[in-house]
Structure formats: structure tokens, C-alpha cells
Design a protein around this nucleic acid. Structure first.
Lengths: 232, 232
DNA sequence: ACCTGTCAACTAACATGTCAGTTGAAAAGG
DNA sequence: CCTTTTCAACTGACATGTTAGTTGACAGGT
């Protein structure tokens, strides 16, 4: 009756059903378990999750306002596709916020914050030695989240994540290129050194350079995965 | 049976019912027609708007994820209250984005863009002469939106608005102080001059100064309107 | 072969019935 | 008089029935 090409459940989450469904769908979209462009059928989702249409509709509505799904009125609901222009916009926003954050953090950094960052860098180095690129990816994300959190503004971490959802999906299409993790680590190290030296000008400059190389590596993906990108 | 202390209708909007309800509620919250902390009863809203609970729930869900309403599970739904820390965070984010935008725009600005900005500044000047401070407020908002739009990134305008929703409400509590509109216009003029001169360093500096005075004027509001602020 | 109008099957949108958690006031006990 | 317990009324959360708009295939005309 319905396709069952996806694994999905709401175990392990908490709170109201709508919230759990939302979290489950969001995770599946963000880790690319659901291909961009894939049609989401309410009936199938309800059957798979064992809930009624209400919480599913609620979840899809929120995902829609986040831009993770496109709802075509009276017709269909799809996982949103990527688009180069949107990725460039998100990159711009992310750079704006992270550069502002690192500028502030470089001025105010505490010894405890330096310690946390240096531990994270040490971890990155170890993971590269192990060729554990999945682990390195996560440590990379954590490095940036640490800096954002050190602003003392907890919502800034959330907002930065929220404004770069598409970017996060696109990153998963990038295989680790030869030597790239080592380069990224070196860039992180330079940012750290600038923070340590309380040189906010250098910190901003290195952060900007570091983030700009990402969009350069993402742009060519459009021709590599045409089905994942909006045709418009 | 129900309170009718608010005027609300979904005329003048378009699209699905849920969308219209969402827009109507959002506008009422953002223009402070609904006081922060006010309880929103689904039943009353349905009766007032002449729709069923489904579209109202959908609208409240979206408003909740935007932080404009707080839903207390199984209990009540309230218009969210302001908080100093949240306002400072939003101010930080807004400054990050607007400074990045003006830096980019100063480098690339076209003659057409300069013309639109100078027309807006002319309008601001006229409205001050007329002591039309409501009109000046709107022209002020437009000045900033013009610059954000000139980045060529349409979503940046939306994102900037989205990340400063509380700030937008708090601004409405500020009465125009003696001489403040004139000061604001002078600051706008300096930003414009820097853009015209393609001096991105100056543009960023003046934009930063301009935005920082807002949070300084907003902070004292907490003691002035204690009922509008979160007690936590 | 191609365009066009029709229609049946599918979908999201909406309405409404039901359930369960929360709350505050009244009753019971100190 | 103050504290504690109970419980009825209210609220949001969820399930499900109903409506209306969209789409794509198929039939008929060009």
C-alpha cells in the first residue's frame, strides 16, 4: 500500500508526539537519510510512526517554516531541494555571525575557554591521525559551536544552526578531500592562536578565510548531484 | 462567555486559513496590540476569527517556534514576554548581519542603489520636519531593509527580521526622545556617505555605533514596563 | 502525431469529537 | 486561621471524519 523505503521511529525522543515526530523527521532530513526532493506522504508517515495525522501535520508545518520541506498546497509535500543561491546566502549569514562571535570572544576569552578549545584541537589532531573523518567532522562542528557559545549568548548557537540548515546538508555531500582535514585543522589552529593572543582583528580575518573555503567546495556539487538541487 | 478585548480578523490576507490566522496573530503580537504575557485562548480565537481549532493550532505552533508565543503543555498559551538577555542576544545577531551587509554593499554599490538610499534619507528629513515620528520610524526600518536587500541576498532581509522579532516589539515601547530622530538621521547620513565613498571600513564602524545605541535605550525599559518582561 | 478538455484518484486543509494533564478553588484537617 | 487534599472545570494534544483543490492519465478532436 505504501512505500517503506525509510527507517524512522520516534523512540528515544521525549515530549509531546508532535515534537517527537518533528525531531525524528528533522534528523532524517538533516543527515540526508531523506533525499532532497523526496515526496513525503502523510499517510505513509502516519503508518510508519504509528500516530495520527495531527502530530505529523504539526511537524511538517514547522519544518516548512524552517525551509526543510516544501508544502505544495492541496497537492504534495517534499523534502526541500538545495539551491546554490540559498547556500550562498546561508554562507553569508553564517560568516557574519561567526565572525562577530570570534571577534567578541577574542577580546574576552577566559583561560577555561582556551583550555576547552585546545582540548578540542588536540582531539581533531588525533582523529586525523586515525583517519576517522566522521569523527573529525563532528569535532569540527564542535569547535565552531564552542566559539559561538563563548559569546555568552546561548541563543546565538541555536540561531547560527538555524540559519545554516541547508549548508549543513550540503556539507554531507563533501567527501574528505586529500589533505583537506589537515588544512582545516591548521586554519582552526590559527584562529585559536589569534583568540589566545586576544588579537580580534586576526581572529576575524582567519575565521572569514576559513568559512569562505567551504562555499567554494560546495558550489561544484550542483553539477555532481543535479537531482538534489532546485531546477529553478 | 469569552473575553473580547481584542480586535482581530483575517480579512485582507490571502492563502490558506492557517496562513491567514498566522499572519493576523503575528501582526497583532508584533505591533503590541497583544500585551506580552497575555493568555491566548484557542476557543476565544476560534470564535473571534470564525474558524475551527485546526488552523489556529497550526498558527500558534509556528508562532511558538518563532518564540512569539509560549505554549505551556496541557495548560495555556501566552504571548511571550520580553527578556533583557534575549534582547541583547538579538541585538548582537542583528549587528553581526547588518554590519556584514553594509560592508559588502559599500564595496559593490550601484548608482541606482545610492539613489534609492538618498531618496529614503530625504524622506526621513521631511518626516522629522513634520514631526511625523511614526512615519520616521517606518522610513528608518526601510533604510535598513534597503541596505540588507542590496546584498543581493533576498533571504538575508527575511533572516534579519526573523532574528530580531523581540527587538522589534521592544522598539515600540520607546517614545521618540527629544532630538533622537535627528541624531538617528545624522547617523544614517554618515552610513550613506561611507557607502557612497565605498569606504567599507567606515560604513561598518558607523553601522555598528548606530545599532549599539538602540540596545542602550531599550535596556532601561525593563524597570519601566515590568509586566512585559520575564521575571526569571 | 499533437493539442485539449474531462474526470477520477490522490492530496492537503479543515472541522470536530475525544482524551488526558493542569490548575485553582473549595473542602477537610490541623 | 493556616495548611493540605480533593476534585471539577478548563486547556491543549491527539484521532478521525469531511471538504475541496490539484494532478496526471485518458479520450476525443484537430
Amino acid at each position: 500500500m505504501y512505500d517503506h523505503k525509510f527507517k524512522l521511529d520516534i523512540e528515544g525522543h521525549e515530549g509531546p508526539l508532535g515534537q517527537r515526530v518533528y525531531t525524528a523527521l528533522r534528523n532524517s532530513i538533516l543527515d540526508m537519510s531523506f533525499d532532497p526532493g523526496m515526496v513525503l506522504r502523510k499517510g505513509a508517515l502516519c503508518e510508519q510512526l504509528g500516530v495520527s495525522r495531527s502530530p505529523v501535520s504539526e511537524a511538517l508545518g514547522k519544518l516548512s517554516s524552517e525551509g526543510l520541506v516544501d508544502i505544495i498546497p492541496q497537492s504534495a509535500t517534499r523534502v526541500s531541494q538545495l539551491s546554490s543561491s540559498e547556500l550562498r546566502e546561508e554562507s553569508f549569514l553564517r560568516e557574519a555571525v561567526e565572525v562577530a562571535a570570534v571577534t567578541k570572544v577574542a577580546q574576552e576569552r577566559s583561560d577555561d575557554q582556551l583550555l576547552k578549545l585546545s582540548r578540542n584541537l588536540r582531539l581533531q589532531s588525533l582523529l586525523i591521525d586515525d583517519k576517522d573523518y566522521q569523527g573529525f567532522f563532528e569535532a569540527d562542528v564542535e569547535f565552531h559551536e564552542l566559539i559561538l557559545g563563548f559569546t555568552g549568548f546561548p541563543k546565538v548557537v541555536a540561531a547560527a544552526g538555524q540559519m545554516s540548515l541547508q549548508l549543513r546538508r550540503a556539507r554531507l555531500l563533501l567527501l574528505p578531500e586529500e589533505g583537506r582535514p589537515e588544512e582545516a585543522l591548521a586554519e582552526h589552529q590559527r584562529i585559536f592562536d589569534a583568540i589566545k593572543a586576544q588579537d580580534s582583528e586576526e581572529a576575524r580575518r582567519f575565521m572569514s578565510l576559513h568559512l569562505r573555503q567551504l562555499i567554494d567546495r560546495i558550489t561544484p556539487l550542483e553539477s555532481q548531484y543535479p537531482g538534489y538541487f532546485r531546477t529553478a
